[in-house]
Design a protein around this nucleic acid. Structure first.
Lengths: 210, 210, 210, 210
DNA sequence: CATGAATGAGGCTTCATTCAT
DNA sequence: GATGAATGAAGCCTCATTCAT
């Protein structure tokens, strides 16, 4: 997913530029992961990326745009990690695969994941663009819900509500685990995943799941 | 509720101090709500609070401490708003009251609520103190879960897991609503609340709720 | 010496004031001794003196005046310590007593002595007043030199030159010792004192000292 | 002499850097000479040096380091001025040349000399590094004393004591003169220099000097 | 294209001084 | 007289951004 995005960009900007662009983004991601957005200085990014401070401005208009592009980039990473193989199997299998991938991804202290969480509640800058991308990237999940609803399998609720009820818990639990507050057992996770699935299941559905 | 905390503080610090202390806290809260932590400058706080810049330092050691105290204060506000009347009624009634209050509180674009969300993923500064307070403030919710488990009503899961499964959706939905992405109908909310309740219910329980 | 000065002041200002005046001066002296003039803040002085910050301004016009008064006060202390019993004995005995007292006083890390050295090379503020006082306080030493010259015992040089040649070394050695760079033996000091005395002695003088 | 130091630095730091580094140091020196260390503000240094405030921080970590480097720089200047041609002639000639240079240098109201005196009694910060440099820079003087002692010409005393007895008077007299308190005649100075030399001379030495 | 030195506005904090109590 | 809360100017320093090389 992200690779696709990057390739698109590299076609436009040429290989060399792509290289530095990428370096800068990765450096920023790493720094934010370590010290939050507050810890992000252009000089630090430059040093970490191994380029001169001025060079950043050849790829990004200013700091705000760097952050915006990073948000978009990281969002792509998260989406592609979570939605990998999303089209294989039954609705339930697909839901649970996404749920588990979301949990497992969110559990990791990787730069991408750590920086991702920094953007969540940023003040209202450029949000429109981000939201659009988010919609686009997570369209497969929305489609899954729609299909489930069409089959009478999933409750006829707004996709965002389904997401809040069934997916957000995976993120919350992953965060709790990553922060070392709890060490969930695999069976707990499987169980929670199942509970989430059942939570949005149509009441009249007969499920084979225990 | 928050008033209780404030009164305690005012007993300790004396009335005069309480006054400015409070003013500064409210100003900071407002600024963070509007522009995020990044937008918080001591000068801005001073202006908004109607005091001189230097005055802030009579009440707070430095910017970090101001933010820490604000986090604690806002956390108290949120907790007291959500846990108001939490001990009245059956387990289910109590759970649902908390859920609804959480949703309704989170939906508001009040300074306290908006600033609250800014702290969620801050880099790990002073987190220990915050966590301790959080545990303490939300103890009633945890007790509710424990009682439910003791009665065989609620699944025997870790309280944090129960929270993630049943409460976090309220917060997520509130956020979505507050941001104007969706305008949930009261019946949707009631329904979601019930789904959350059922999600953590023991499977052998016979519920009258449909 | 200082006592005289203080008494004069106390007659004018009354006993109570004298008390706080003194307290503030001693506090400032202590603080400067510990951290240099740079470390002197009015708040610190107030705290150390056990008075309110505003109180200082009832006794001193501003910080500059506090420092000026302290300089004068400390100068008095030093002079009276060094010139104690200065009129007893022969010229030589009197010279050597002063020399030894100067060395011994300068060796101590007392607040008065430590703060004294902070003023030595201050930029040219209020120097006129200080110089006048200095002249006045050290008049006995100058008289000693004059008497020595009149008796043909001491070289007919300017008193300041005699001071530089014969007295300053005592101060320098004391400082070196106080800073822990050298630990002079009593006999070294006696010897140095004698060398200083001989240095300004008239060449035609027959001295019994070897 | 100082130029040597500077050239060394410029070889290391490159020409451009050397230029601004030097400018800043000279500006700071000038400001301290005029108003003491208390009068040194980074803004003032920037203005005087003709650079932006932030530029200073490319060359000096912070104000403390700027002051430390300036101390070292000025110490080097003083040492090289005083010890110029120090190895030519007999022990006595060498001693007297240093003494005279010390007096003549100390007499000047040059920025370097004026700022030099400001550092003398600073609170104990970074003193170790300064002392080491001082020892190193003034090693030739110490060697002179050692040679004089080895030849039985100079009293067998600690070099610091010899310095206090014979050299410090030069500094004190220079200061007095610079401050306009006295205008010494050349013959006075020559005489004082000779007295200082004789003061540390071994008693059994037959001197041709009057 | 890339560099990195330079800029200077702006942020945090201190502190001498005032003034209502 | 005494207090100490309040002030706000001024100090140190950072950092996004520019531009000559």
């Amino acid at each position: 997913m992200k690779i696709t995005l990057m390739n698109e960009r590299s076609f436009i900007l040429g290989y060399t530029m792509h290289n530095k662009y990428e370096l800068i983004l990765r450096a920023a991601e790493k720094i934010i992961a370590a010290g939050g957005i507050q810890g992000l200085s252009m000089q630090l990014v430059a040093t970490e990326a191994g380029v001169a401070a001025g060079t950043i401005y050849r790829y990004f208009k200013d700091k705000d745009q760097l952050i915006l592009e990073l948000r978009k980039d990281v969002l792509s990473q998260v989406a592609s990690a979570i939605l990998e193989d999303h089209q294989i199997g039954t609705i339930e299998q697909r839901f649970k695969r996404i749920w588990m991938k979301m949990y497992n991804y969110g559990k990791q202290p990787s730069p991408a994941n750590l920086s991702y969480e920094q953007y969540a509640n940023l003040p209202v800058i450029n949000t429109q663009e981000i939201r659009q991308l988010e919609m686009q990237l997570f369209a497969p999940l929305q489609q899954l819900f729609e299909q489930g609803k069409a089959q009478g399998l999933i409750q006829p609720l707004h996709p965002r509500m389904l997401y809040a009820l069934a997916m957000e818990p995976a993120m919350t639990m992953a965060r709790t685990c990553r922060r070392g507050l709890i060490d969930y057992q695999p069976k707990d996770i499987t169980f929670a995943c199942d509970l989430c699935w059942r939570a949005i299941l149509s009441p009249n559905t007969t499920t084979a799941t225990i």
